[in-house]
């Protein structure tokens, strides 16, 4: 009787597994179809639109709405997204896009190679964002779902520093609606003394003249030195020896969706959501409470 139950359960599990695999395969095929069913490749800009910008002009926008960037750390605070300033400027070669500054060295019809510099985001999770008390009610810290796991509160360890990254970025405009971006960066202010890189595939869809969708999938790779500087626990952190942790290099896959609807010349409705799945190199750290980082925002944007 026990054996029969066991066999039945195993068969059901196999069916479930096959069903799951089928779903994954169908989803993958659909995603590939969506990404590949695009017009012929051409990345030339003929007018200002969502992906093209007039050179030599500063563009300043402000988003007002409600959103959050979750913090995966024990003792970390979710970062509220209420008022978001946005600035971009493109010269013939130089460009600024909010927290990124860059200079394009090579610009062909389909490929642009640039050197860039940007603030590394990891320190933001170790920062106390007092702004949340000004704008919105306090987010309650996430309940610890694994009380048995030995964890370390980020407030009890040695301070991590902000890092400024610099490196190269390649944008490959596969078609009018598909873009592949790759970047390789190294910190230039000698904080973690390592590398990080990103590979990102974007698909742009026009639902109407006024409504645009941008879906993306990608991968953030972090070197052992970066992972270990921010998420490793060393004796200098002055915590229990059993909590020491040596982080390795690893990757975090992510998906994102951005929907914009133009309301008038200056106003735009904006929605975006992103989820990044932390690799085991980070998620196994005693500092980590959540194994993913999510961000979401809904609001309106005013372009000055």
């Amino acid at each position: 009787m026990t054996n029969q139950c066991y066999i039945t359960t195993e068969l059901e599990l196999r069916k479930l597994l096959l069903l799951s695999i089928n779903r994954i395969l169908i989803t993958t095929v659909l995603l590939i179809y969506i990404f590949l069913s695009s017009p012929a490749a051409s990345a030339q800009c003929k007018q200002a639109d969502d992906n093209c910008v007039l050179t030599g002009q500063w563009h300043i926008s402000t988003a007002l709405g409600a959103g959050v960037l979750t913090n995966p750390l024990h003792g970390g605070e979710n970062i509220p997204l209420v008022v978001l300033p946005y600035i971009h400027y493109y010269g013939e070669q130089f460009f600024i896009e909010n927290n990124v500054i860059g200079y394009s060295l090579l610009q062909s019809e389909d490929v642009i190679l640039s050197v860039i510099s940007q603030l590394n985001r990891e320190k933001s999770f170790f920062t106390q964002w007092q702004a949340k008390h000004l704008f919105i009610p306090t987010f309650s810290d996430t309940v610890n779902l694994q009380p048995e796991k030995e964890y370390v509160n980020q407030n009890e360890i040695k301070k991590r520093k902000w890092a400024l990254d610099g490196g190269v970025q390649v944008n490959w405009f596969i078609s009018d609606t598909i873009e592949l971006k790759a970047q390789l960066l190294h910190d230039i202010n000698n904080v973690y003394q390592g590398f990080n890189s990103q590979l990102r595939l974007d698909k742009f869809i026009s639902l109407s003249n006024n409504t645009r969708v941008n879906a993306a999938i990608g991968l953030n790779w972090q070197s052992q030195k970066l992972s270990n500087y921010y998420y490793g626990i060393s004796p200098s952190d002055k915590v229990a020896v059993r909590s020491l942790y040596q982080a390795k290099s690893g990757s975090n896959p992510f998906i994102s969706l951005n929907i914009r609807h133009q309301l008038s010349q200056h106003w735009q409705a904006q929605f975006f959501i992103k989820r990044e799945f932390l690799g085991s190199h980070i998620s196994n750290s005693p500092l980590i409470q959540e194994s993913n980082i999510s961000s979401a925002f809904v609001g309106v944007v005013y372009a000055f």
Binding site: A63, S124, S256
Partner: peptide
Amino acid sequence: SQSQLYRRRLRAQWSLF
């Protein structure tokens, strides 16, 4: 020429990091 007036944007809009 048109290509000197307009440029393709190189970063995802409203991407926080």
